[in-house]
Computed example of a mutant assay.
Amino acid sequence: MTGASTAGSRAAVTDGPARRGRWVLLLLLAAALVGLVALPTWVVAEGSSALEDQVRVAVAGSQVAPQASAAALVLLAAAGAAALVGRAGRWVVAIVVAGAGVLVVAAGVAVLADPSGAVTGAVAQATGVAAGAARTTTTPAPVAAVVVGVLVVLLAAALARARGAWRQGSRRHERPGATGSGPAPAGPADERSDWDALSRGDDPS
C-alpha cells in the first residue's frame, strides 16, 4: 500500500512539468496557425483606374485584418507565460488565450460580412477609386481564420480545466541563500588578537 502511494506521489510530482510542456507546445502551435492563416490573400478586388480599365488587387489577411497578426503575437507571449506561471497564473493565461481566439474570429467574420469595407484603403490606393465601385471576392482564408479562432477558444477552455500539478516555474533567478536561515554566526573571537589591538591603541570591536 505504501509503495502504491509513493508511486502515485511521484507521478503527481512529475506530471506537472510534463503537462506544462504539452500546453506550451499547443500554444506555440496555435500561434503558428494564427500567423499562417493571416498570410494568404483574404479578399480579391477588381476595379478600374484612370490609367487602366481593370485593376486586380489582392489583399492579404495581415493587411485587411491586422488584429489576426496581433493575436498570433499574443499567443506567443501566452506560451512563454504558461512556462513560468503557477496555478493562479494559468487562469490568466487561459483568459488571454480566449481573448486572442475571439479576436481572430471577429476578424474573419468582419471580412466575410463586409469585404468591400475591409479593403477600402487598399483598393483606393491601388486604383484611385472607392472600394464600393470595385467587385470583391473573398477567399477561403477568412473562413479558415474563423475555424482557427474557435479552436483557440476551445484550447483556452481546456487549459483552464487542466488537471494535475501546476507549480510555479523555475526559480533559478532568485538570490542565492534567499530561503536559508540567515547568515552563519561569526566564529569565536580571538582574544589574543583583541589584546594586541588594544596594545596598539585600536578598538577591536
Rank of each mutant, 00 (worst) to 15 (best):
Gly121Gln: 14
Ala130Trp: 10
Leu39Ala: 14
Leu51Gly: 09
Leu159Ala: 08
Pro140Asn: 07
Ala158Asp: 10
Val93Pro: 03
Val104Ile: 06
Arg175Gly: 10
Ser49Pro: 07
Ala144Lys: 07
Ser48Ala: 15
Ala145Glu: 00
Glu52Tyr: 11
Thr41Tyr: 03
Gly149Ile: 02
Val146Ser: 10
Ala106Asn: 11
Gly177Pro: 11
Ala70Thr: 13
Val59Asn: 00
Gly101Thr: 11
Val148Arg: 02
Arg19His: 09
Ala184Lys: 12
Leu154Gly: 11
Leu73Pro: 00
Ala30Tyr: 06
Gly8Ile: 07
Val34Thr: 10
Thr14Leu: 14
Ala60Arg: 12
Gly86Pro: 06
Arg175Ile: 08
Ala118Trp: 01
Ser116Thr: 12
Val109His: 08
Val148Tyr: 06
Trp195Val: 13
Gly187Leu: 14
Ala113Pro: 05
Ala98Lys: 13
Val105Ala: 05
Leu33Pro: 01
Gly132Trp: 08
Arg161Ile: 00
Gly180Ser: 14
Gly164Val: 05
Leu198Thr: 00
Val93Leu: 09
Ser48Tyr: 07
Val85Trp: 01
Ser181Lys: 02
Thr138Trp: 03
Ala145His: 04
Gly16Trp: 01
Val152Met: 00
Val43Asp: 01
Arg135Val: 15
Arg87Trp: 00
Asp53Thr: 10
Ala78Glu: 06
Ala157Gln: 10
Asp202Ile: 01
Asp194Arg: 11
Ser193Leu: 13
Ser193Glu: 09
Ala145Ile: 00
Ala68His: 02
Val109Met: 08
Ala72Pro: 02
Arg87Thr: 13
Ala133Asn: 12
Trp166Leu: 00
Thr139Cys: 07
Arg10Pro: 00
Pro140Trp: 09
Ala113Gln: 11
Ala110Tyr: 02
Pro204Gln: 02
Val44Tyr: 03
Leu159His: 02
Ala88Pro: 06
Leu84Val: 14
Val34Ala: 07
Ala158Lys: 07
Ala131Val: 03
Pro17Lys: 04
Trp91Val: 15
Ala186Thr: 11
Pro204Ile: 00
Arg10Tyr: 10
Leu75Asp: 08
Gly121Thr: 15
Gln125Val: 13
Val64Leu: 05
Ala124Lys: 15
Ala178Glu: 12
Gly128Asp: 06
Gly177Tyr: 05
Gly99Gln: 05
Ser62Met: 11
Ala124Thr: 14
Leu29His: 12
Val93Met: 07
Val43Cys: 02
Leu198Arg: 15
Ala79Lys: 04
Arg200Trp: 03
Val111Glu: 04
Gly89Arg: 01
Gln54Tyr: 06
Ala68Leu: 04
Ala72Ser: 14
Ala124Tyr: 02
Glu46Met: 06
Asp15His: 08
Ala141Lys: 03
Ala38Gln: 01
Met1Gln: 12
Ala157Tyr: 06
Leu36Cys: 02
Trp91Ala: 15
Asp196Trp: 06
Ala144Trp: 12
Ala110Asp: 15
Val143Lys: 10
